[in-house]
Amino acid sequence: NEAEQSTPVLFDDLAEENLQFVSKLKDSSSSCAVDVSTVWWEAAGCRELCVVTACENSVSLWKPLAPDHWGKVYTWQLGEIPVIQIIPLLDTCNLICIALGNLEIGEIRLLLYSSENDSFKQSLVKTGNIKAVLGLKDRRLVSSSRSMQEQEVEVVSFSETGRSKHGQTLMPPEETILAFAEVEGVKDALLGTTAMNSIVIWNLKTGQLLKKMHIGYSYPASICHRAYSDSGLLFVVLSHPHAKESESCGNPAFRVIAFNPKTARSTGVIFSSLPPGHAGRYMEGEVKDALAAAVLSSGAIAVWDLLLGRCTALLPPGPAGSWALVRWSAGGSGLLAGRGDGGVCLYRY
């Protein structure tokens, strides 16, 4: 299998920042990987960071058996509606949220283990025309859905045993929400990006819509990945799946913008562009702390340090095919890379 692994390419002299192959999940039954994620799972008093893989009609939980070996713990079989994505619930244990649907999300389900009757279960959380969803701290989930002309933005919270509690409604903006991000440093603030390229801010406690700020026309359909408040400014990490290449910024994958929420004025802080001379566009990606990773249309995975605005590692497509997915691990700085054929590799950054 060693020949199958891609060899990471380093782009600078930061010797300690490396992308090292750790292990591979082998799933002979899986035909395609829809999504991959990590989850803390506790069984028999042992709490471990496990890997979750999603195919169109099933979701599997994998636990570490040995340094290079993973064993499948359980597979939830889903119905006829295909799985679209795994929705990580931060700081939770034994709870996995998934989104199902055709093109758009039509259903959100919770997968869990019930110690009461020693069985793995699944339960329905929400149905509708769901446009965006994000797992929040404290076992909560925010989603936006459209019914006729109305947009509904709702926060649902779960108990430790996975029971969903009464949801809270947030005041919806006129524009369709495409993505959410919690605001680090401000406990009750939630941010969203809209189809009209605006940023909206809510107060999660009161449900108030506090502000709408326009991002600008240069980078349409921006998606928010992370937001934090510092020194009175709101810093937002955005990706730009539809950005055009420019001479000054190259082909930008991620951008950090500083907003003054009081005046709605903003300024670009740093660009993270595709490596020089590397063809391809940003396809999909994820941000964790100051690290961003994305799958490029060339089939490679690129990693950026957002503080430097520089690509620090590149994982070219291997002999087994192009990369289709990239996710950061919940613990440490692990990177999960998924191929279209269902193969998932773990790397250490």
């Binding site: 107060n203 108030q208 506090l210 009175g232 400014l233 500083a258 003054n260 009081k262 004025r265 300024t267």
Partner: peptide, 23 residues
């Protein structure tokens, strides 16, 4: 970025916007 680019900055922007926004 300077204050003049972004306008007056408030460390309590969240509380201030919450008190100004409709309930």
């Amino acid at each position: 970025c300077s204050d003049s680019d972004l306008g007056p900055i408030s460390l309590n922007w969240f509380e201030e916007l919450s008190s100004e926004a409709p309930p």
